[in-house]
Write a protein that binds this DNA or RNA. Structure first.
Lengths: 156, 156
DNA sequence: ACTGAAATTATATCGCA
DNA sequence: TGCGATATAATTTCAGT
């Protein structure tokens, strides 16, 4: 991962623009312009600056997985044998579509992952068939998310 | 949290539309139309259907926190005293801007949170000053993310 | 469900304050 | 940085298949 080390200064107007687009990435520039009280051209200019600085990394629509029957989120701490290279394990994890996050972490686990499944049965299948099948995975510890109460980005 | 129990069927064209917008929420409808080979009006119609079904929950720009000096992500398992109501603790957590996710989970911890800080010093401050100050928090277990290898949404 | 056409809005890029 | 003006492009709606 590249280290970002740019000096970026954002003012109150930038913050307002960012906050609006963090709520709705498709909000028209002109609507933002009306709300913050400068011209569309100026908003456009600032957005280009924010993109160039990489503070704005991109945009995505948010999918509600429950609508497609995916309602089980779980966190899994993965113990890896010392002999196994972590990157090799990560490569295998990338091939499991249910794995939606993967971190190297401090502490007992080598790798910490978040997975999204239809239900508990599906979760068990992924755990037993896919995760445990990865060479070097000795043990896992699973925590099911019963309910997510907070979900947000950096406070701008 | 409301239970979503709608019968939603999406076809290959819907999938293509969704995949494109999951990569770039601002991709013009007409560009999508050209890529999938149907008219802009038809894409528009499908998008309205997908929004109405709540499969598309919204959109956001993605902020790169590192650009603003936030480079430490940590996961924290929180032990709560039995006497304390979890929702009360969550209410307090909502007031800590560094807390970007919060889940009720099975297992040892009552609550599991993800936090975003500038550095380890900042993390320690949030842990000691903010999290530990919440009534009922008896103990925490912290795992720092050394590097995130996977970050994605449901595979459509 | 999709289309093309038309009306309305938005985006992007100027040169200038 | 910001502005207004302008050209290009996108969105949205609708009647018709």
């Amino acid at each position: 991962m590249k280290i970002v080390n740019q000096k970026v200064t954002i003012d109150g107007i930038d913050k307002k623009i960012l906050r609006m687009l963090m709520e709705d990435a498709r909000k028209p520039i002109l609507e933002i312009a009306r709300k913050v009280g400068i011209s569309g051209a100026a908003i456009h200019q600032r957005l280009r600056k924010l993109e160039k600085s990489k503070l704005i990394a991109g945009s995505k629509i948010t999918i509600n997985p429950k609508v497609l029957g995916y309602s089980t989120v779980a966190f899994i701490g993965v113990f890896l044998d010392k002999a196994v290279s972590n990157p090799a394990a990560v490569r295998q994890l990338k091939d499991i579509p249910e794995v939606i996050e993967c971190h190297y972490t401090t502490g007992n686990w080598s790798i910490f992952i978040k997975i999204l499944c239809k239900d508990n049965e599906h979760l068990m299948e992924v755990l037993n068939k896919d995760i445990q099948a990865i060479p070097g995975v000795s043990r896992t510890e699973t925590f099911i998310s019963l309910d997510q109460q907070i979900e947000r980005q950096l406070k701008i």
